[in-house]
Design a protein around this nucleic acid. Structure first.
Lengths: 140, 140
DNA sequence: ATATTTCTTGCGAATGAGTCGCAACTGAGT
DNA sequence: ACTCAGTTGCGACTCATTCGCAAGAAATAT
């Protein structure tokens, strides 16, 4: 129960979701990824661990994991969906438009301001999305 | 030249872009829309003005207008792209998750903070996207 | 262990938003 | 009016993602 992946699989089992060979592989890839891979990339990485996983299964598993709150899906501009484990603290994203690299950041003041803006209009925030499309200073 | 639509069509002509019956209709729909319609909706509204416009043309025109900086495209979560004229001041969006209604807002302090965050990491913002998915306080 | 039950998988077909090729058409300058 | 490059409508196509279904495999009961 020390292994973070085992912690996840236990959580799934408790939710009545079977931990198959395929799901274990996908979970492992997600848990160890240092980036924000998309479905085809996850498919190829998972197959390196456990050959014979179909792309449909990757998509299905990703949806399941998202519903379970285990991972987060991000739909950045002009690209297919990218995923990351949800265990981490809340953060937003900065996307380098030249390289596609994703940088995470979090700013408590912005979060507070967002909540204030919504509250002023009688709303509460269900969730939000903030993405900064950026370029290294002094390029292009 | 008082009419805002005429102003737009003149700008297009100057850019070497022909103002066709189809484009005029689409522009008129966009300029007078009080909401953020998607392509099929624009298609149906434009056809009410000038019958016989194809959906392909709507899509093509929207891309052209976006490239010209005349309109803005927004890709909100789980929905097809929605459009609005770009003449207005910069603003962000709040989406009521229950009704789909889009509310515009702008907060100078958030904008400044975003620029600061990017600058700290050696980036400049090309553009950004901030969407608050909200619900009326005390519902659901 | 074995059988049972129900969830999962792989496959390929289907979807849905948006794009493209192409022949026919049409603004707008001459 | 004439010309010609920019546009259009149509249907075919793409791409990411989802679905139907029969075969396969976790968890559970026996």
């Amino acid at each position: 129960m020390r292994d973070p992946i085992e912690k996840l699989t236990d959580a799934l089992r408790r939710a009545g979701i079977r931990v198959t060979r395929q799901r274990a592989a996908i979970l492992e890839v997600l848990a160890t990824a240092q980036d924000h891979p998309d479905a085809p990339e996850l498919h190829s990485r998972a197959n390196a661990i456990a050959p014979g996983i179909s792309l449909s299964t990757v998509y299905r598993t990703l949806s399941t994991l998202e519903t379970q709150g285990v991972i987060q899906r991000h739909q950045f501009e002009g690209a297919s969906a990218r995923f990351e484990p949800a265990e981490t603290d809340h953060h937003d994203h900065m996307i380098d438009v030249d390289t596609g690299k994703v940088i995470e950041f979090c700013n408590e003041r912005i979060e507070r301001l967002q909540a204030e803006i919504a509250a002023e209009l009688g709303y509460e925030i269900v969730h939000h999305r903030m993405e900064l499309y950026v370029r290294k200073t002094g390029q292009g």
